[in-house]
Amino acid sequence: MRSEFQYRRPASIDEAVAMKADLGTTAMYWAGGTDMVLHWMRSIHSPELCIDITRIEGLRGIEIDRDSIRIGAMTSLDELDRSADRHCLLNTLSDITKLMCTPQTRTIATVGGNLCNASPAADLSPAFVAMNADAVLAGPKGRRRVRMEEFFLGVNKTSLSGGELLEEIRIPLNPDLKVVASYRRIDRTVVDIALVNASSCISVDSDGVINGCGIALGAVAPVILRVSDAETLLLGLSVRELGRDREELQKVEELSAIAAKPISDVRASAEYRRQMVKVMVRRTLQDCAIQLKA
């Protein structure tokens, strides 16, 4: 049975954190709430207090400086979608948001809410992992930064603890390198949840040599997987080799498939997912190569 709850709308992060500290587990931060409403309806969560944090100014907006892109956790997917022309990584993230839920839900749903829901099939999560992003968490004891791949602990489980909330995501930038990212997924109809997904992020120096590489897989384990051993293989290669049929690329596909620990469920079989990991990773790398050529 659905719980009955009170509703508050704090004006600042500190106020929100204090409210949560007062009431503990029966109080829940509420972002866009598009997942939370469903969890509440199904009594997965039974809050007594809903702390609506969407209108806290400090949690909103996208800022770019020399060293990083900052995305406020309460930025809506719709707003992220509209940030495409501000940076090439935002362009990739914008393309990802177009695949997420529906236009009518993207106006409500937030980036932070999507990450905190910690779905293994979430679309943005592998991209942030591949981009080496950090999550900035705010809590009663102050702020801390967590690497994105360490933020996810399991299905619907994150490293948020002790009344913390997700404040922002920071994607590091290196002004000396050119960076691109790509995302691919298997879906059925145009609105869907990923059956398998993958994201790659490649940085190259002025000679076109790969200097940084992130490869992340989704929907093939309880958490987003980072395929570090595959990433290492690509370092030092020329970007021109990415589009070609090279032994390293085959090895990357294989290592990714080995890393994957998929299950069979209503959406797809484990075997299909494992096979598709290879295709998705290859296609994200090819996409990166095409972007770098452009």
């Binding site: 109809t189 609105v191 949840i193 209503v266 959406r267």
Partner: peptide
């Protein structure tokens, strides 16, 4: 029935 919802019971949409 494990997919008595429109998330996992896939109906075609406009662009499909």
């Amino acid at each position: 029935i494990k997919n008595a919802n429109l998330l996992d019971y896939k109906l075609l949409r406009c662009a499909d």
